[in-house]
């Protein structure tokens, strides 16, 4: 599946370091390796999930791809439909401007990503106006069409975002992101700020739009259930490193990294069973400014050996299409979702 499809986006060995400074004279007090040698690829037309807990660097990755943050090293190759493959790291302003016509982002909190002083029309039309794609009557028609596509009534067009509910606002964000007809949409936690019943509506909308417009999604999320439902392949991140990649279903059924196992094991489930004791990792995610040496996960890993404390494991291909960053990926017997039978409730 991954091999066959041509990759719309390829991230190769990307690193990003933030320097912390403090005090009167802005002395550098430390560095945070927000992204440490990240590599993954996003095949055209598919949905790739970027999963991890807070501080793992998944959002940073999204902004680096969009050009809002500059990578220190590595390559980000985007296959532009007109220009062919372009490396976004170190690309000039003009190139970035052009590529962004094909690449847009959906943010987590619709309250923060919509300028409260602008009307829906101006918000959705802004990308089209800036890039001089449409104007006048054609612009208005396009905005109406976009509003309808995301399931909003065009009569909301001249309202301000505050007159809408959270779910409706997120639809506006989606309409705006789609205004330029992008190929790739980076969706950064697009549903986590929404109510349960609105989350499903939004996910369905994203899925419908993907089918209609052949969109490719890079889906950044922390909710494993959502990732399992929504993505084709998954990239699991921990403290700036990729821990595991593979086809979503396989990753969740048979994880090849103890961190993935810990994540899956931690998710509360609806099953009619009272909580039982589980193998979950101990401790909390360490600060990204002071990550543990060797494998970042070793202090919390139940399988940690001496080598884990000393040597950083490489991200290796363990099976075709499956990569893991663990010294013992081949030998460990890790538990995924299959260890507990799915018991879906049957509504009467």
């Amino acid at each position: 599946m991954i091999e066959a499809a041509p990759n719309l986006l390829e991230v190769r060995g990307v690193s990003k370091t933030f320097t912390l400074s403090a005090g009167l004279f802005r002395r550098d007090t430390g560095v945070v390796r927000a992204l440490d040698d990240i590599s993954f690829s996003v095949p055209a037309g598919s949905t790739v999930g970027l999963v991890g807990e807070s501080g793992c660097g998944k959002s940073t990755m999204g902004h680096v791809i969009m050009g809002g943050l500059k990578a220190d090293a590595g390559e980000i190759v985007f296959t532009d439909p007109e220009q062919g493959p372009v490396n976004l790291v170190g690309a000039g302003k003009q190139t970035l401007r052009h590529v962004r016509l094909n690449m847009q982002m959906i943010f987590q909190d619709p309250n923060a990503s919509l300028n409260p002083r602008m009307r829906l029309f101006d918000l959705i039309a802004e990308p089209l106006v800036i890039n001089k794609v449409l104007s006048g009557k054609a612009l208005e028609e396009r905005v109406v069409q976009l509003l309808e596509q995301v399931g909003l009534s065009p009569r909301y067009m001249f309202r301000h975002p505050h007159a809408l509910s959270g779910g409706q606002r997120q639809r506006v964000v989606i309409a705006r992101a789609l205004a330029l007809n992008p190929q790739l949409v980076v969706a950064d936690e697009p549903i986590s700020a929404l109510d349960v019943s609105i989350q499903a509506q939004t996910l369905n909308l994203l899925k419908d739009l993907q089918q209609e417009r052949k969109l490719t999604y890079l889906f950044i999320a922390h909710d494993l259930g959502v990732v399992n439902h929504f993505t084709d392949t998954t990239v699991v991140m921990y403290l700036g490193r990729v821990m595991e990649t593979g086809v979503t279903r396989e990753v969740f059924r048979q994880p090849l990294n103890p961190y993935t196992e810990a994540l899956i094991g931690s998710v509360p489930r609806i099953g009619g069973h009272k909580r039982g004791r589980r193998v979950v990792s101990t401790g909390e995610v360490p600060s990204a400014a002071k990550p543990p040496g060797g494998c970042h996960f070793h202090p919390r890993c139940p399988y940690a050996q001496d080598i884990c404390r000393k040597e950083v494991p490489a991200l290796r291909e363990i099976r075709p299409g499956r990569q893991s960053r663990c010294h013992f990926a081949e030998t460990l017997e890790l538990h995924g979702m299959t260890s507990e039978p799915a018991s879906a409730p049957v509504p009467h």
Binding site: H63, G67, R100, Q104, F107, Q108, A112, N115, I130
Partner: peptide, 24 residues
């Protein structure tokens, strides 16, 4: 986020200043 969103939509510095920052 809304200023970032404007940047990702290729908004110029002038536009960001006068359309998004100043009114805010």
């Amino acid at each position: 986020d809304f200023v970032r969103a404007a940047k990702y939509a290729n908004a110029s510095t002038g536009r960001i200043m006068f359309k998004h920052l100043l009114p805010g």
